[in-house]
Design a protein around this nucleic acid. Sequence first.
DNA 1: CTTACATGTAAGTCATGACTGACAGGTGCC
DNA 2: GGCACCTGTCAGTCATGACTTACATGTAAG
Lengths: 107, 107
Amino acid sequence: MNSEELLALLSAVGHAQRLRVIAELADGRLYVSELARRLEMSRPLLYMHLDRLEKAGLVVGRLELSEDGKALKYFELTPFELKLNVATVLAALHEDAAAGAAPDERP
Amino acid sequence: MNSEELLALLSAVGHAQRLRVIAELADGRLYVSELARRLEMSRPLLYMHLDRLEKAGLVVGRLELSEDGKALKYFELTPFELKLNVATVLAALHEDAAAGAAPDERP
DNA sequence: CTTACATGTAAGTCATGACTGACAGGTGCC
DNA sequence: GGCACCTGTCAGTCATGACTTACATGTAAG
């Protein structure tokens, strides 16, 4: 994991609203409108947060057709586990340097 | 750990510059001006980042007098370790709710 | 055909965090 | 005194993230 991925993850989780989104999805998947109602949040705003979370790999969204033909966009949590300490930070920056110095594994 | 503390921690670490600060301090403590030079960052800016890190409990600063009487503000890393997953998030939000509902442990 | 519910996005506002430059002060050294 | 260091903070700019309102689309049910 490089620093870009690490930053995406940390800055995604490091926001009060997104913390609530994660908590709400912990019980199981939900579609966007329903989730917006539960969190009392406007849908466009929720979209942004879900975008952020999805880019960080914390949630995945899937558009589905319900039995009665309605389109519903379901989001569910991706299991994640990160041990955050000094070593993690150093490793991420280290990986950046390695990638920058040697973009390809073997010449 | 409640959500406020969790957010402080995550948003503190979740920034490229502060990642570099942490990495630089990993080798040992440094005083502000020296740290600013190494990171090629203006001192006022560095102060802000150090503030943020200190409030999150990731670093501690101590003003010391060198042998020749110069005042130096040394910063050093505080060992930290956080396991970040869904359970952590839920626990933090849970703690908020508990504190809000029952501010005192026993009546 | 209107109501109700869903997705998706564009446009614009607003607050905040990130950053700069300039200044105040203090000490030691030549 | 003047230079070379340090600490600390204020005032201001700038970019970005967070947020709202409004609209376009589609389907199903009454």
